[in-house]
Amino acid sequence: MTQAPAPVLPPEAFQRRLLAWHDRHGRHDLPWQHDRSPYRVWVSEIMLQQTQVATVIPYFTRFIARFPDVAALAAAEQDEVLHLWTGLGYYARGRNLHKAAREIVAHHAGELPLDVEALSELPGIGRSTAGAIVAQSSGRRAVILDGNVKRSLARLHAVEGWPGRPAVARRLWALAEHYTPHERLADYTQAMMDFGAILCRRGTPDCASCPFDDVCVAHARGEQRRFPESRPKKALPTRTTRMLLLQDAEGRVLLERRPASGLWGGLWSLPQFDDQAALRAWLDQHAPCSTLAPSWSPFTHVFSHFRLEITPQPARVRRLDSVGEARRWYDPDNPDSLGLAAPVKSLLTSLATFTLTAPDP
Score class of each variant (00 low, 15 high):
Gln285Tyr: 09
Ala154His: 01
Ala132Ser: 13
Ser37Lys: 02
Thr357Tyr: 15
Ala293Gln: 07
Arg24Ser: 13
Thr51Met: 01
Arg201Val: 07
Val53Arg: 03
Trp42Ile: 08
Asp206Lys: 09
Val143Glu: 02
Pro163Asn: 11
Glu229Gln: 14
Pro211Phe: 14
Ala76Met: 09
Leu9Trp: 05
Glu250Tyr: 04
Leu351Ile: 08
Asp213Glu: 11
Asp336Ile: 02
Arg102Ile: 06
Ser230Thr: 09
Tyr91Ala: 08
Arg127Cys: 06
Ser120Asn: 11
Glu325Lys: 13
His98Leu: 07
Leu48Gln: 07
Gln224Thr: 13
Ile104Gln: 02
Ala6Ile: 03
Leu254Asp: 00
His98Phe: 04
Val344Trp: 06
Leu348Ile: 06
Leu112Trp: 00
Val217Glu: 05
Ala326Cys: 10
Trp85Phe: 02
Ser37Ala: 14
Ala176Gln: 00
Thr241Tyr: 08
Ala135Gln: 01
Trp173Glu: 05
Ala191Gly: 06
Ala20Trp: 11
Val134Gln: 00
Glu229Asp: 11
Ser37Tyr: 12
Trp162Pro: 06
Val344Ala: 12
Pro11Phe: 10
Glu183Ala: 15
Phe299Tyr: 15
Leu351Ser: 00
Pro271Cys: 11
Asp23Gln: 15
Val344Leu: 10
Ala341Leu: 05
Asp187Tyr: 04
Ala158Val: 01
Ile125Leu: 06
Asp146Trp: 05
Ala54His: 14
Asn148Ile: 02
Val215Gly: 07
Leu145Pro: 01
Ala249Cys: 12
Thr180Lys: 01
Phe299Leu: 10
Thr349Gln: 12
Pro359Glu: 10
Ile133Pro: 02
Asp284Thr: 09
Pro38Val: 10
Gln136Trp: 00
Trp21Arg: 01
Glu111Cys: 14
Ala176His: 03
Arg280Gln: 15
Pro298Ser: 11
Leu338Cys: 08
Arg155Thr: 04
Pro298Thr: 01
Val344Arg: 05
Val43Leu: 06
Arg307Ala: 15
Gly131Val: 13
Thr355Asp: 10
Arg95His: 10
Gly124Val: 04
Ile64His: 05
Trp268Tyr: 08
Arg318Val: 13
Ala20Asn: 07
Arg16Tyr: 06
His178Thr: 04
